[in-house]
């Protein structure tokens, strides 16, 4: 799969010449989002092909979360398009069976138990409760499942978010800063978990501002800054994994003097 990856557009700011192939799982084309005068995204273009794990890197405020929200149909683009499996998210017949997402905001009602959080989402999509139980065990929340989420640690919330994203057994996972706030053991667990998911042929996009975390998990990295694509890096083409990813990142985001 690795050599089938998208066109490398190393250090081409605002690159727009990426051709989406037939098996594009994610297609972002000329995507812009303005909030009044503030330009959150500026003609962002990239594609993701099936079976790849891609890092979505950039400083805080670069537009990573905005891109994910547009892909998920939570917000409308000002211009351009954000497609999953060639269609807008809201036009998918069974969206949770195709796309799973963990958003950075950690969206739980603190008074509701983890089990009931999964059940309300399972009910809404016609997924049996057994699937929720299966996932509670998979993310090792079985024993805490009946406690209200307000008693959960950050790591437990991240795992509950992952379980919710996996309810429909989706082919594409969009993860917003999944390692945020995790302790080293949690980060280690997450890495193994993601690699296991990827081994099943899923396409995964992981946004992060922690390079070292992503370097060991992803095949390639999209680097964005100020709402524009700064470049794309193929990790297997770098000589020394994490360290040269850092150099590329600093160069592309212009944070290195």
């Amino acid at each position: 799969m690795r050599d089938e990856q998208l066109t490398t557009v190393n250090a081409v700011p605002g690159a727009s010449g990426v051709i989406d192939s037939a098996d594009a799982v994610v297609t972002v084309r000329g995507l812009s989002k303005h909030y009044g005068d503030f330009v959150a995204l500026d003609r962002l273009t990239f594609t993701l092909t099936a079976g790849t794990i891609t890092g979505f890197l950039g400083p805080n405020g670069a537009g990573k979360t905005t891109t994910l929200r547009l892909l998920l149909g939570l917000a409308e683009p000002t211009a351009g398009e954000a497609l999953v499996f060639g269609r807008r998210y809201r036009d998918l017949e069974q969206p949770t069976g195709m796309v799973g997402a963990v958003l950075e905001s950690g969206d739980f009602d603190p008074g509701r138990s983890g089990r009931n959080h999964l059940r309300m989402l399972a009910l809404a999509t016609g997924i049996p409760y057994e699937r929720a139980e299966e996932l509670l065990n998979l993310v090792e929340l079985g024993r805490a499942a009946d406690r209200p989420v307000r008693t959960y640690s950050l790591g437990m919330r991240q795992r509950l978010g992952l379980a919710a994203a996996l309810l429909g057994d989706p082919e594409l996972l969009l993860l917003d800063e999944p390692a945020n706030g995790l302790d080293p053991a949690g980060v280690h667990w997450l890495r193994g978990f993601l690699q296991q998911l990827a081994a099943g042929g899923r396409t995964i996009l992981i946004s992060s501002h922690v390079l070292a975390e992503v370097a060991q998990t992803v095949h390639s990295a999209l680097i964005i800054t100020s709402g524009r694509l700064a470049g794309q890096v193929q990790l297997d083409q770098l000589e020394d994994g994490a360290r040269s990813l850092e150099a590329a990142y600093l160069e592309l985001t212009g944070t290195m003097s």
């Binding site: 998920l72 149909g73 939570l74 998210y89 809201r90 998918l92 969206p95 949770t96 796309v99 997402a101 958003l103 905001s105 950690g106 969206d107 739980f108 009602d109 603190p110 959080h117 989402l121 809404a124 999509t125 919710a164």
Partner: peptide, 18 residues
């Protein structure tokens, strides 16, 4: 309003984008 307050509106709308 509690869904907007706690953010559960996002998973709710992901499960049912209509």
């Amino acid at each position: 309003t509690s869904e907007f307050r706690h953010g559960t509106i996002r998973p709710t709308l992901l499960a049912s984008p209509r």
